[in-house]
Design a protein around this nucleic acid. Structure first.
Lengths: 208, 208
DNA sequence: CCCGAAGTCCACCGATCGGTTGACCCGAGA
DNA sequence: TCTCGGGTCAACCGATCGGTGGACTTCGGG
């Protein structure tokens, strides 16, 4: 039998932290060695405590789970990261995995799945919720699934705020024609033909 | 000293349930007598177990926290309800209170606040997160804050799907002119002047 | 019984949007 | 070096949207 799996829990919600801790602490081979309430603290504690893995929420103040994951992975190749999210449609799934996360589970997952995920990741394997795995596969089939460019995303974000094309142009210091170009391209990528649907779809996918 | 406070916990996320249970069970005067994984089960267990209060999540499968609260209050005047939400902008705050909830706390609240809230509600008082209390007050100042009519909400929902005014009219079996009327009124109530912002704002407020 | 809220509908007009085509610049990579 | 993707801009046109003002019906409550 290996030594105990040392875990750092990072989530801004006290209730969720307590839940993860309660579920994990009940397992004899898992020990919770610390808790962080935001992304920055997660990075600090991860580097100070060097746990086997960090169970990390995606949406946190000060530093998102993605960014925190990237920073931890940059500075340590022993600390693995298991990301938790509420929304399976979250676009951050891809970025978290790119950032070096070893697992991605839904908060709606049953306790056994979380615990099994912790053990898998600690053993060097990958842990994915079925719903998330399915989504990854479907994204693989679609070559350019979302992949909005920086500018397109910026424009769409301002559209969501209700700005007109002209106003967006002024805000970004470009011509209205440019704004329209970005929008038309975003429409094509999203498979829609009006700004409102583009915004709601982008929101569903966590793009903006 | 009074007898122990008997609590039913209702949340669809195993992690959150475990968290609430862990936090409450640590208090000597609080006992968790049951857990429900959705709204319908919350109603059933509340009526079967008759706890002093139900700690209920707003967003749950099968039956929302609002609706479950209303049903419980209809059938029992001893079981109180303390509602938990992730989003302070949730429009369900009002409907939950109308439905008879005795408290409304944010999941981001610290553990002490949750525990204090449980004791307050069990004692017959009202418990509100500061952020939520502030929002209630601001709504009081604005006489008709959101209050979109049924039709306006329907129209806005279809706008969110990217339909044109004409298409919405066809879908609802009314003229395009009618759709525009509803939209203009919704714009006034929301304080915006374009459909996209109207949709994003309505989403933020949980209106659609 | 009358009033107001909600829902329905119409016409008109200027502003904006969406679609199209074509063009230029720049930087990264084949 | 040349290509390609990302970003920039222009002109044009039909379609749609937003704003205004008015009108009619129904239904529930004062």
């Amino acid at each position: 039998m290996n030594r105990v799996i040392r875990v750092l829990v990072a989530d801004d919600h006290a209730v969720v932290r307590a839940g993860i801790v309660a579920l994990l602490a009940a397992e004899p081979d898992i020990e919770v060695v610390g808790e962080a309430v935001d992304g920055e603290q997660a990075v600090e504690l991860a580097l100070a405590l060097l746990p086997d893995l960090v169970v990390m929420d995606v949406r946190m103040p000060r530093l998102t789970g993605d960014a925190a994951t990237a920073r931890i992975r940059e500075r340590s190749d022993t600390v693995r990261v298991l990301v938790l999210t509420t929304y399976e449609s979250d676009a951050s799934i891809l970025s978290a995995i790119e950032a070096g996360a070893s697992g991605y589970l839904l908060k709606a997952a049953p306790a056994e799945e979380l615990i099994a995920g912790v053990r898998s990741v600690a053993a060097g394997e990958v842990a994915l919720s079925p719903a998330i795995a399915a989504q990854l596969v479907s994204r693989m089939r679609m070559p350019a699934p979302s992949a909005l460019t920086t500018r397109e995303t910026e424009v769409l974000r301002l559209v969501a705020e209700g700005l007109s094309n002209r106003a967006i142009g002024e805000r970004l210091f470009v011509g209205e024609a440019t704004v329209k170009t970005h929008l038309v391209r975003a429409f094509e990528k999203l498979g829609v033909n009006d700004r409102t649907r583009a915004v709601t779809l982008a929101m569903e996918r966590g793009l903006i």
